[in-house]
């Protein structure tokens, strides 16, 4: 085990993947010699050469299309989109191409092994072009897998599983935690399952569901609630697509209450999908309406960022509302 922050864990995962399989190639804007603007690909060009870790021209659309082509040939491209806010020029290549490659060809061709890594989320005074959480757009696209880690250990294991996945993966990295989240990480290769949620704290009164950087926030809210004698079961969804209905449903069948938290705006956010599915699965066991604590239905603000965030206080209030219903 070694102490790593999330960037180091991601860098370590990429290093191991490139070492293990010479089909793994990392590229994107400033990814080469510089190691990416957040330094996630630091030293990889030095170690594996310019052919396997390189800068691309400044074109997300080009990066995604290039990655599709490489993956179709059988390699495992790990393409970095510098900020998730800048993924939209690549939307066509991801939504219409990556996601449908296998389906449209009757499995003649596929882009398994393709991973788009991209930093997402707010809390860094980035305003609306450096703070968005666009997971729900991609969750609406059959054929993609969408993964969000919460800490260094999760980031490494889930990234290695993504690179080894037979299907294309969008790997959203919570940039607020890049350096802030530090933990023990095994130095050797390991994978964590895609499509499986994790119960990170067991509880009896209420289920609290989140992913990525919001896990810290819901934990804080659960700690507040505990002082009121409320026992929260906390689940990290980890994969948005496919998502682990069973783990969430089993928990809600036990607790009878669900609060979902995400950074992205409320309307059309993934919490809506979870709520719809869980009310169907757990209807007769629900003690209160499912609560969603999300961003407001506005672009991510700058000066009013603190007010906008689905923070621990708003989450705590939702917990109390749910319990007192």
């Amino acid at each position: 085990m070694a102490k790593m922050n999330m960037l180091q864990a991601i860098n370590n995962a990429l290093d191991l993947a490139m070492e293990k399989d010479d089909g793994v190639v990392c590229f994107g804007e400033d990814v080469g010699h510089f190691g990416g603007v957040f330094r996630a690909t630091s030293k990889l060009q030095e170690k594996y050469g310019k052919a396997r870790c390189f800068n691309t021209p400044l074109t997300e659309q080009g990066i995604a299309g290039f990655a599709n082509g490489m993956a179709a040939q059988g390699m495992k491209p790990v393409a970095e989109i510098q900020f998730a806010d800048y993924i939209f020029p690549a939307f066509d290549q991801i939504v219409n191409e990556s996601a449908k490659f296998r389906y449209r060809s009757g499995d003649e061709f596929n882009v398994g092994g393709l991973v788009f890594r991209t930093p997402y989320g707010g809390g860094i005074a980035g305003g609306h072009y450096h703070s968005q959480s666009p997971e729900a757009y991609f969750a609406h696209t059959p054929g993609l897998k969408v993964v969000v880690p919460r800490d260094p250990y999760q980031a490494k294991g889930l990234l290695l599983a993504s690179i080894n996945s037979p299907d294309p993966v969008i790997f959203f990295e919570p940039k607020r935690l890049y350096r802030a989240s530090v933990g023990e990480v095994p130095e050797e290769y390991y994978e964590l399952p895609i499509g499986k949620a994790e119960v990170v704290q067991e509880g009896t009164d209420l289920t609290l569901l989140a992913w990525g950087a919001q896990m810290e926030i819901v934990q804080k809210a659960a700690d507040m609630a505990e002082k009121d004698g409320i026992s929260c079961e906390i689940i990290d969804l980890r994969s948005i697509l496919p998502w682990d209905v069973e783990t969430v449903a089993q928990s809600v069948l036990k607790t009878g209450r669900l609060v979902i938290n995400h950074e992205a705006p409320l309307t059309g956010g993934f919490a809506g999908e979870v709520a719809a599915t869980i009310q169907q699965r757990c209807f007769l066991h629900l003690e209160s309406p499912i609560e969603r604590v999300c961003g407001l239905d506005v672009p991510y603000p700058l000066a009013l960022e603190k007010e906008y965030i689905a923070d621990h206080l708003k989450t705590y209030e939702a917990i109390v509302r749910s319990i007192n219903f």
């Binding site: 005074a125 305003g127 072009y129 700058l302 000066a303």
Partner: peptide
């Protein structure tokens, strides 16, 4: 990003 900003404090500096 203050209240007198024409852009109402919504964008990062220099926008």
């Amino acid at each position: 990003s203050n209240e007198k900003d024409l852009g109402k404090g919504r964008q990062m500096p220099v926008h």
